[in-house]
Design a binder for these strands. Structure first.
Lengths: 234, 234
DNA sequence: AACTTTAAATGTCAAATTTACAATTATTTT
DNA sequence: AAAATAATTGTAAATTTGACATTTAAAGTT
């Protein structure tokens, strides 16, 4: 079979916007780019799509390469295709955003990428259009987390309601009423109270909760309204 | 400047899932593909991204080429990148879905593409992964229309509330209570009642409404909840 | 002119949800 | 034993939703 004639072929890359939560702030995992152009500059983790891969595979491979993690929550954000977004050569990038439990992350021994967590609000200047990607990813995160139980992906298996609230407050840069928040979250039926308490933060200690895996799967795409009127989001 | 070495370059296309509404059913605009492979088979309208174009431009150009319309509502759905989705040669496709007022559509004189509207429920077999694209577009349409004032893009400037309801019922393949529906829609404050009535459908006639353009722009991304519990959508 | 027909427009009440707001409790430290 | 701290829980008013039937405007018919 022949090929399509007279058409431009281009590189296709994936770039990952990797979010984490350290208990206080929303973080972004960035690397120092290891090759030209823009070598040594801060960048999203990315890579070219290989001959035998589809996009999800490329994104998962890229994420695993950096974090060592597999089975991480990830979804396609959008494709970025401005003709000159990469000055070297035309490269389409399909952006994926990922949510990981920051505690699961172990920096690769081989320090191959000089990766570093940055507070989202205080990230360095990024190469190409990566800042735009991060911006869109943040908007998407806010959008989806307002109506779906997404942010649990950023927490460890066991977490407390106050921890969850701090996370929501970090994502929306806003304060929520404790009573209403916990009622809302508990009313989803997704949480299972544990017998143990988290004792580091307070004298009284807060009960741990875990996700009810069955219900979590079942209701992941349901409209749960965690945040009312989450601003003017896309 | 040199190029990235040892990487696969590939074709990048855009494909448009074009929805219309004829007053009764949700429709899909398809073309008979004009070149090999799969020449003569039903297909989404698409085209290769050109050297100087970004993705939005390519999608808009493609849509205009088929419909003659400009300024149409369009948003990126997702990128499809399975290695063998096009048997001829590896081609990444970025899918866009568009909503057009079916009455605005005039088939191009040059009949270049043999385009045809199909009821969404009764569309023919499509080439490559286009059926999957349509399926995802429909899911996205249902998702977004449940919470944002999106479906107005499918209607003419003047429309009646019963017409709007029929549209919602077509999109969700469900019936809604007239009283609750009109209350919900009117409570958004987006509609301006006109003096004239639509007189073709009923003896009494239904008042026309228009969108309040200011409020429509302002609230387009707001969470308006047109449909409660719109099923288990993504 | 009165009556019939058809679809549009509108109202109400109960239930559920949301919002605003403060007191109590478990535990550690002093 | 008292103080301090953060977790947990309650309630009443307001708003929104859901279920349900009647009235109304206009055209057609007798």
């Amino acid at each position: 079979m022949t090929r399509y004639s007279r058409q431009t072929r281009m590189l296709v890359a994936v770039d990952c916007i990797i979010f984490g939560f350290d208990g206080q702030d929303l973080k972004l995992l960035l690397i120092k780019r290891g090759f030209e152009p823009e070598k040594g500059k801060w960048s999203l983790m990315g890579g070219f799509v290989q001959t035998d891969e589809d996009l999800e595979q490329a994104a998962a491979r890229t994420l695993t390469k950096l974090t060592g993690l597999e089975g991480v929550y990830m979804e396609q954000l959008t494709a970025f295709g401005s003709p000159n977004r990469d000055p070297m050569e035309r490269t389409l990038s399909v952006a994926y955003f990922a949510l990981i439990d920051i505690n699961q992350y172990k920096q690769q021994i081989t320090d191959e990428y000089k990766a570093e967590w940055f507070p989202l609000k205080d990230a360095p200047k990024l190469i190409f259009d990566h800042a735009k990607m991060v911006e869109e990813a943040q908007a998407r995160l806010r959008y989806k987390a307002a109506i779906h139980p997404l942010l649990f992906e950023l927490l460890p298996t066991r977490f407390t309601i106050p921890q969850l609230q701090i996370l929501f407050e970090a994502v929306y840069d806003a304060g929520f009423d404790k009573r209403n928040f916990s009622r809302k979250v508990l009313s989803t039926g997704l949480l299972v109270k544990q017998k143990e308490k988290e004792r580091a933060t307070s004298k009284r200690g807060a009960f741990y909760y875990k996700l009810d895996k069955r219900k979590y799967s079942a209701k992941f795409h349901a409209f749960l309204n965690f945040v009312s009127d989450p601003g003017n989001l896309k």
